[in-house]
Amino acid sequence: MNVFRLLGDISHLLAIIILLLKIWKTRSCAGISGRSQVLFAVVYTARYLDLFTSYISAYNSIMKLVFLAASYGTIYLMFIKFKASYDHNHDTFRIEFLILPCVLLSLLINHEFSPLEILWTFSIYLESVAILPQLFMVSKTGEAESITSHYLFALGSYRALYILNWIYRYYAESHYDVIAIVAGIVQTVLYCDFFYLYITKGIYGQ
């Protein structure tokens, strides 16, 4: 554990909490892509199956459980409790165009051809593009509430901080995972346009 990794995890946790609080406080999930949230639930489920097979640390297990619970909690709020506020009409990104290539790629490029390893790889690939329905929704409506922007900024920062963590680990521990690194860079690049808008609007727009 290094400071970049810790900050990345905190940023990730913050993003999830911001989203849950936003939906809970406003009793509405307007402007939030249910499709992205479903993809994130798939990502966490596929990746954290190793909760049953390998123990790393209490921190690791607790964080995994929190991410799973928060993700399914978000889905419950969006699709059941505050279903009426869900913005179907603007959430139209075809997620099969993301899922199928990720399935294919994880079968072709992985560290080991075993079920858990393929699921882990699939989750890494899918996570890198899971935000696209949300970004598509924001660009389609041409606006995002400031709280949604904070959510996206925290969520994007998480993988950017992980890149710093990977650079650190490469030099300090000779540890690297090419699949995670490449997918993490793709994931971060997808947020660049949003980061630019968030920073320039945040500073000059108010």
């Binding site: 995890d9 640390s57 991410f67 560290h111 080991e112 992980y162 521990e173 000779s174």
Partner: peptide, 10 residues
């Protein structure tokens, strides 16, 4: 020391 199956990150 690159390990295949131990993914210690979240």
């Amino acid at each position: 020391n690159f390990t295949l199956t131990s993914h210690d990150e979240l």
